[in-house]
């Protein structure tokens, strides 16, 4: 087809337009790249170099269902006791609780947060208030939580709690544990595997220049420390020499809701009696 002078004009103008657009896009991209480079002080992504995978093993044969772990957890982590009204309205907060009857158990089962390898609560949090630490603990930044409760809906184990009203403790607040921040109204809270105790133990080992032994770790969280029958064992699941890894490899070991695909790091040893 023969082109007329008008076509040439149109083609020229189109060429100029495209050149203009390309220049604009290049400018925009260059500006953005510079902005990204200037953000060297932005929070750096944590590396996943750590090989520790903290986990719990709960032996249901040993567990006496005494509830000592529940009370110790409340005390250690400044969990406000629910008032009689709140309890009646089914709004208690128990980071460690009893499930009426879990798979592998004929009676109530102590159930903390499962600290999943693939936690659905972390995926759905819109502001990153809940996240996974390098060592596999599902942690929560209370100050950042907006109280949307999406994490509670997503958690297959129902192990998250919302502060429906302002928390109140009996007596003086000086009785609270200074290592754990109390949570305000309107935020979601959960078990942290006594993260503050782990940090303190790691720091102590660093200062003393001694390795952190498995014996030190086994009863580190408040629930494990308080258990009179030693049914709860804590440790590094990634360390094959640790007690917790040895127990996790037992043929009695089961995980809750494996079909959910969350790969929990809290493992139960099912009852044999």
């Amino acid at each position: 087809m023969k082109r007329g002078p008008l076509d040439d004009d149109v083609r020229d103008s189109r060429r100029k337009l495209l050149a203009g657009l390309a220049a604009s896009a290049a400018g925009a991209l260059a500006g953005c790249t510079r902005a990204m480079a200037a953000q060297s002080t932005a929070p750096v992504a944590a590396t996943s170099g750590s090989r520790r995978r903290w986990g719990l093993v709960i032996d249901l044969d040993r567990c006496a269902r005494c509830g000592g772990c529940v009370v110790a957890c409340q005390q250690e982590n400044n969990v406000a006791p629910a008032g009689s009204d709140a309890a009646a309205r089914m709004r208690p907060i128990h980071w460690m609780d009893f499930l009426p009857a879990a798979p592998g158990s004929s009676s109530a089962t102590p159930i903390p947060c499962m600290h999943c390898e693939d936690p659905p609560c972390v995926k759905v949090c819109p502001v990153g208030a809940t996240y996974k630490t390098e060592e596999g603990i599902t942690a929560q930044i209370w100050e950042r939580c907006i109280g949307c409760r999406y994490c509670m809906v997503a958690c297959p184990y129902a192990r998250r709690y919302f502060n429906w009203s302002e928390p109140r403790w009996p007596g003086d607040v000086s009785s609270l544990n200074p290592d754990v921040a109390p949570r305000p109204r309107g935020v979601v809270e959960k078990c942290t595997l006594c993260h503050h105790r782990i940090r303190a133990a790691l720091e102590r080992a660093r200062v003393d220049e001694e390795p952190l032994t498995d014996e030190t770790l086994r009863r580190l969280p408040a629930c494990a420390q308080s258990c009179p029958t030693l049914a709860i064992t804590f440790g590094d699941l990634a360390d094959p020499e640790s007690e917790v890894a040895r127990l996790a490899a037992s043929p009695r070991a089961v995980r809750l809701l494996p079909e959910a695909g969350t790969r929990p790091k809290v493992i139960y040893l099912r009852e044999t009696k």
Binding site: K123, C125, P126, V127, G128, I146, G147, C148, F162, G186
Partner: peptide, 27 residues
């Protein structure tokens, strides 16, 4: 009305919103 901390949401969503959450698309 539903959010536990609506004021925190107005600050934190624009600052820390994460596209992996389906809520990112809604807000």
């Amino acid at each position: 009305a539903d959010l536990g901390r609506p004021m925190a949401a107005m600050v934190n969503l624009p600052l820390f919103g994460r596209p992996r959450s389906p809520f990112f698309g809604t807000f």
